[in-house]
Computed example of a mutant assay.
Amino acid sequence: MRRINWHTIRLVLIIFIMIFLYSFSSKRNSQRKISKIDIKFESNENMFLTHEMVNNLLIQNLGGTSSIQKDKVDLNTLETVLDDHEMIEKAQIFSTADGFLNMRITQKTPIVRVITDVDSYYLDSKGDKISLSENFSARVPLVVGAISEENCKSYLKLFNEIKNDDFLSKKITAAKIMPSGNVVLTNRSYDYKIVFGKPKNEERKLKNYKAFYHQAIKDTLIKNYKEVNLMFIQQVVCKK
Rank of each mutant, 00 (worst) to 15 (best):
I9F: 15
L11H: 15
I15K: 12
F16G: 10
F20E: 04
F20K: 00
L21Q: 05
S25N: 11
S26R: 08
I34L: 08
I34F: 09
K36M: 01
E45D: 14
N46K: 09
N46C: 06
M47K: 14
H51N: 15
L58W: 12
G64S: 06
G64V: 01
S66C: 09
K70C: 03
L75Q: 13
N76T: 11
N76H: 14
T77V: 05
E79H: 06
T80V: 05
D83P: 04
H85S: 02
E86L: 00
M87V: 07
A91M: 07
I93N: 01
F94N: 13
S95A: 14
A97L: 09
G99K: 01
L101S: 04
N102G: 04
N102S: 11
P110K: 10
P110W: 02
I111G: 03
V112R: 09
V118A: 03
D119L: 00
S120P: 04
S125L: 06
G127F: 08
S131H: 08
L132S: 02
S133C: 01
V144N: 10
C152R: 13
L158A: 07
L158K: 00
D165N: 09
L168I: 03
L168H: 06
T173G: 05
T186P: 02
T186M: 08
N187R: 01
Y192E: 02
F196G: 12
F196K: 03
G197D: 08
N201K: 14
K210P: 09
K210C: 13
Q215R: 12
T220L: 02
L221T: 14
I222E: 00
N224I: 01
Y225G: 00
E227V: 13
N229Y: 04
M231L: 13
M231H: 06
F232H: 10
V236E: 12
C238S: 13
